[in-house]
């Protein structure tokens, strides 16, 4: 948790952190196991896939767009890497899959960044089209890796380094890297500017098309990394494994306080959103609730979180529209 504290004052202002702490205290009072190191580690590990994807989507959203195609892109990437694993070996399967996924990201980026089409509709169309591609590629079959014990590919989803599960390390490292990029590098500044005011960005000499294009490449890259973790953990893949992920990812991003209007948001807060959703799920299960009760809690949490955010900005609790 110390990594989160490093974000310090920037995070402290956010209601999401308060909500997070309240939930953590509530759950730890209700279940002894909740705050155990084992449990926390397992929540971290489980949230890694959503988390890695959420990093990419946060960057897209800060740039003023949406990406709904990440779910079926995850199916695509996972099926591809798992299927190729036995055909050409993991050392080739991974780069081929990453390249193929980046191509999908480039298509998104081209349509939205260069042609300036509406990102919601484009990525909706891509969601459908990529799902179709996966089904065509796999012939509707699920894929799996035959020799699950003997491949070093297992390291990404099942391995550990210094006692910390690899997915956590990957998630943490990516979050840190992209947080640094977004907050301290020129590229991050430009994404914020383009999302905040695309016209003013062009008037400031920022290559708006290229910046948006890059955000979709990053999003695709994150999906590819998530697919490596997922494929390695499961050692196989259903052909629709990523279905619905786009919305869970978006929920985490929104919960992290990133505005869908673009221009503001933070990777670290998205991580907080991801963890919060994961801890809610975990806490409810520890309390003996069925897993789907988390969706009800998520519903309330998302709306209240965004509501308070919106209310703070307009200076009154209720909307002034009659």
């Amino acid at each position: 948790m110390t990594r989160l504290k490093a974000g310090g004052p920037a995070i402290a202002k956010q209601g999401i952190l308060v909500a997070f702490i309240v939930f953590m205290i509530a759950f730890s009072l209700m279940s002894d196991r909740f705050l155990s190191a084992d449990n926390i580690m397992s929540v971290f590990r489980q949230s890694a896939i959503i988390g890695v994807m959420a990093i990419g989507v946060t960057i897209v959203v800060i740039g003023g767009n949406l990406d709904l195609s990440v779910g079926s892109m995850l199916s695509f990437a996972t099926v591809l890497v798992v299927d190729l694993h036995d055909k050409i070996g993991p050392e080739l399967a991974i780069p081929v899959m990453v390249l193929a996924t980046l191509c999908l990201g480039a298509i998104n980026g081209f349509l939205i960044g260069i042609l300036r089409l509406n990102s919601l509709i484009v990525t909706l169309g891509m969601l459908s089209a990529i799902q179709g591609l996966v089904l065509i590629y796999s012939g509707g079959q699920n894929v799996d890796i035959v020799d699950q014990r003997g491949t070093w590919f297992a390291i990404f989803g099942r391995g550990a380094v210094f006692g910390i599960a690899t997915p956590i390390i990957i998630f943490g490292a990516l979050a840190l890297i992209f947080h640094v990029i977004m907050t301290t590098m020129p590229f991050g500044r430009r994404v914020h500017a383009v999302g905040g005011n695309p016209t003013a960005s062009v008037f400031s000499g920022i290559p708006r098309s290229r910046v948006v294009f890059m955000t979709y490449l990053i999003s695709a890259l994150c999906v590819a990394i998530a697919a490596i973790i997922l494929g390695s953990r499961v050692m196989g893949s259903q052909n629709n494994v990523g279905q619905g992920y786009e919305l869970q990812v978006l929920a985490a991003v929104i919960l992290g306080g990133t505005s869908l209007l673009g221009g503001s948001g933070s990777i670290l807060r998205t991580v907080l959103g991801v963890l919060m959703l994961a801890f809610i799920q975990n806490g409810l299960i520890l309390m003996g609730q069925p897993y789907y009760t988390q969706w009800l809690v998520t519903w309330a949490v998302i709306i209240v979180a965004v509501w308070l955010d919106v209310a703070a900005k307009r200076g009154r609790l209720f909307s002034p529209i009659a």
Partner: peptide, 21 residues
Amino acid sequence: KEQGLVLQMNCRDNMTLPQVQ
């Protein structure tokens, strides 16, 4: 407001935007 500034961005970042790279 529409062409000159990114309103939610701070003063310094707005000022250095064209040369930030």
